[in-house]
């Protein structure tokens, strides 16, 4: 009785082990491909302090003057690729991409900084409000 059970279940166990491996490798695949849902919309928003426009953020959002950026800001004080906003876990981080005029969070110049709901982000001469 035990013999039969053990013989059947060994195939089940191997199957489960490889199912586990499949999932682990799937995570790696997503990691390498950068398919950490970079293009997926999040619930966070970025809006001009003047209120003219509001953007919904992706998992990774690039901001700058160039057309390639997700959020295009037409201002001579904003660099072509100015800053990046990333979601890691549940938190949002802003990263300055060596811009000429710098990235400021609540008036402080930052390289990488965590941003919270209500923070004012200044890029060049443009003020943006971060709404989580």
């Amino acid at each position: 009785m035990y013999y039969i059970l053990s013989q059947i279940l060994k195939y089940v166990l191997i199957f489960l082990i490889y199912l586990f491996l499949y999932r682990v490798f799937k995570i790696i695949y997503m990691d390498i491909k950068g398919v950490r849902r970079e293009r997926q919309l999040t619930s966070a928003k970025l809006s001009f302090l003047t209120g003219e426009r509001t953007f919904t953020l992706f998992e990774v959002t690039s901001i700058g003057r160039s057309d390639e950026c997700d959020i295009v800001i037409e201002s001579p004080y904003v660099s072509a690729r100015h800053a990046l906003i990333k979601k890691r876990g549940k938190r949002f981080y802003i990263e300055d991409l060596n811009s000429t005029n710098g990235t400021f969070v609540n008036g402080k110049r930052v390289k990488v900084a965590r941003i919270k709901n209500g923070d004012i982000i200044t890029l060049g001469d443009v003020d943006l409000k971060f709404i989580a």
């Binding site: 586990f20 999932r23 682990v24 995570i27």
Partner: peptide
Amino acid sequence: DEYVKTGSKALKDVFWIFVIAFAL
């Protein structure tokens, strides 16, 4: 997101291996 979901699914597989192996 899918990233986290796949991780917890993998952990569930670990759990089922545990149940079967130790039951045996």
